[in-house]
Design a protein around this nucleic acid. Structure first.
Ligand SMILES: [Mn+2]
Ligand SMILES: [Mn+2]
Ligand SMILES: [Zn+2]
Ligand SMILES: [Zn+2]
Lengths: 139, 139
DNA sequence: AGACCACTTGCAAATGATTCGCAGATCTAC
DNA sequence: GTAGATCTGCGAATCATTTGCAAGTGGTCT
């Protein structure tokens, strides 16, 4: 009768913490575990950071969220339903620009054809130097 | 008169530790700081891990070595003179395959043209699923 | 060769991020 | 409602990397 909750129908228990973490990931867009915890605590101060970590892992296991790497370490999380896009990270100024995944389509296809490798282009950022910093380099 | 040592000519002091770290990076090919320390200690047991970290940073600052990211965290180091290549990391089995940077040439060029972004394709690994694991998925 | 001093090193402690152990709380299925 | 599996908070552990500091060393200038 009752429509199954999206967490329950994936075999997960429905706890307030879990729902809050998922909601925070959806609102924030590629946020770190720390940022997600902070967001959740704005309305529910008691939630422990390790609970956030554990739930991120759980949610990732059932495919509701995914992580990627935008900087030199750590991971950021985003909702799976979010439209995938490339992250252009500038090693000089640290800016993070977006680009459509289509920009990598040929690249992905050629890796697939030549190596049988199925690429997830948005798991790691695309690293380099942004237009602004490239300009500035011509000092 | 004396031919300047490669470290000295970059304004660095020539210490045994520094030379050893550089030599280890050259021999190992994308190794972690820990692996580099281990290598160095095979012949010089006294060398401290923090000395390795500090020298890797120093060597990177003068352009003799570079780091990249092959896994979900941490960094690996390689010598700058090494031929750049792509790393195809499989998220399923963890294998790391190589591919020539040329495979990314069109991709890099299009990011340059459309966004003015100069891409360093080998800083982050290319993440995805290798041919073997892709096969296996058709269970 | 000797002296000076800035740069390096080893060591121990600090840090920051993530994980773990466990006892008590809470979900769900019955 | 009860029972058992799962989850949470909390503190401690772990792991990677960084830092402070006192002692050691390399390069330069007599
Ligand atoms: Mn990096
Ligand atoms: Mn990852
Ligand atoms: Zn920039
Ligand atoms: Zn694989």
């Amino acid at each position: 009768m009752a429509q199954p909750h999206e967490l329950r129908e994936r075999g997960l228990r429905l706890t307030p913490q879990r729902e809050l973490v998922l909601a925070a990931v959806r609102e924030l867009d590629h946020a770190t575990p720390e940022e997600i915890a902070e967001k959740v605590r704005q309305t529910h101060p008691g939630i422990n950071l390790s609970t956030v970590y554990r739930n991120l892992e759980t949610l990732e296991n059932v495919g509701l969220v995914q992580h990627n790497h935008l900087g030199h370490g750590g991971a950021s999380y985003h909702a799976s339903e979010e439209v995938a896009h490339l992250h252009l990270v500038c090693g000089t100024c640290g800016s993070v620009g977006d680009a459509p995944i289509e920009a990598a389509l040929n690249f992905v296809n050629s890796l697939s054809e030549e190596y049988g490798f199925r690429t997830d282009v948005s798991h790691f950022a695309v690293y380099g130097t942004c237009a602004v910093c490239s300009q500035a380099e011509l000092s």
